[in-house]
Amino acid sequence: MPRPKKESLCDDIAGNGCGLKKVLNIVGGKWKIMILCVIDNRETVRYGDLRRAVYGITNTMLAQSLKELESDGLVKRIQYDEMPVRVEYSLTHKASTMIPILLELKKWGEANL
């Protein structure tokens, strides 16, 4: 009896159609998942609070990561017309659907690393 074909993580690792490659391009790197975790925990977070919560991140890296997460549709940025200017970040629905997957990765890491 032939075995059912195993689903491949990526048929074409270098190809642009690989879903796993797309995800890693968006949330890969040292800081982005940590930023998503902080925003998920607090639901809405201001820049300064985020900077203090993500230990070791520079202002430049935080600003760049937030811009990329926003342009990729994972983080929503709301700027209030106040003085001083107040900016808040929250997860989009798209990012919220990724949280259960990140929780599974966390559990795997706790069990295996």
Rank of each mutant, 00 (worst) to 15 (best):
L62R: 08
V38Q: 15
G56N: 04
Y47T: 03
R51M: 13
N59P: 05
V54S: 04
Q64K: 15
D72T: 01
L50I: 02
M34I: 05
L20K: 09
W31T: 03
R42T: 02
L66M: 13
I57A: 07
I57K: 09
K21N: 07
Y55D: 13
K76N: 15
Q64T: 14
T58K: 05
K22A: 14
K21T: 07
L50W: 03
E68M: 02
T44S: 12
V23H: 06
T44D: 10
V27C: 08
R42W: 00
R51G: 01
G19P: 04
L62Q: 05
D72K: 13
E70H: 08
R46G: 13
R42P: 00
K21H: 03
G29A: 09
G56Y: 09
G73W: 02
K21A: 06
Y47Q: 04
K76S: 15
I39S: 01
K30S: 08
D49H: 10
K32D: 00
W31S: 02
I35A: 05
G19V: 05
E43A: 10
Y55W: 07
C37P: 00
L66D: 01
L24N: 10
A63Y: 09
V54D: 11
C18V: 07
D40G: 00
V38P: 05
S71P: 00
Y55Q: 11
I39M: 07
R46N: 11
K67P: 00
L36F: 13
T60A: 14
T58Y: 01
G48N: 12
